[in-house]
Amino acid sequence: MDVVTIEGNEYKVVAQRPKSLTDKPFTYCPGCNHGTTHKIIAEVIDELGIQHRCIGIASVGCSVFSYEFFDFDFISVPHGRALAVATGAKRMRPNSVLMTYQGDGDLAAIGIAETIHACNRGERVTCIFVNNAIYGMTGGQMAPTTLLGMKTTTSPLGRDAKRIGWPIKMSEMLAPLPGAAYIARVSMHDAKHILKAKAAIKKAFRAQLEDKGFSMVEVLSNCNVNWHVTPQEGVKFVEEHMTKNFPLGVYKDVWEDEKAAKQTDKEKG
């Protein structure tokens, strides 16, 4: 454990900012889960020792400034195109580690073609997909993942399936594609789930490092400001409603599949 000396006294460091974060204080709204999500990603990258090989792709939305907070090479790209940019970069530099950080509008609306095809090609990239069921940056418009009945500035009477369809389930959609190596949905609504989220993110990076294929972690998050609730009510809404509409769990796990395949082979003799 690290030791620091302050005014002649030695202190043990029990907690510190991950190396993979810059010194810049987060500018996200109070109660938003982006900060915590950044922190656990940075911890995973530190633990895997890949900080100096990481290339981050910042998307458009609240995550547009993610490049200011992660301490490794970064590029900020057009709305929805993060996984196409990641594809080009990874193919040219297979030894780098590619991470896209995208919101629901970016990944599941304007960028859904890039998302599906990057997954289907089995691109060796890791996608962190933050789903808070709303467009935060532009002021609270409806997202493709907005829950039925949820009021937004562009669904002022509540999302109506008859007129605008249902919240789209990306993890469920991507998991059956053969290019997917690891697909999981996690939530940030309490400490226990945050730890689970971190474990999932670590696995997602491992899938890339072990050359298994495409990996995505869908992170259920809150946007208390645009939901017009308190931060406490926000996380409660995630726990009670978001997780019901977007069930948590691992949707694709290449290692489990490999184990199962080995087991079947054994049984066949």
Partner: peptide
């Protein structure tokens, strides 16, 4: 956008 990514890596 793939070209953007490739070019960003100096290729």
């Amino acid at each position: 956008n793939m070209v953007m990514g490739a070019s960003a890596t100096g290729t």
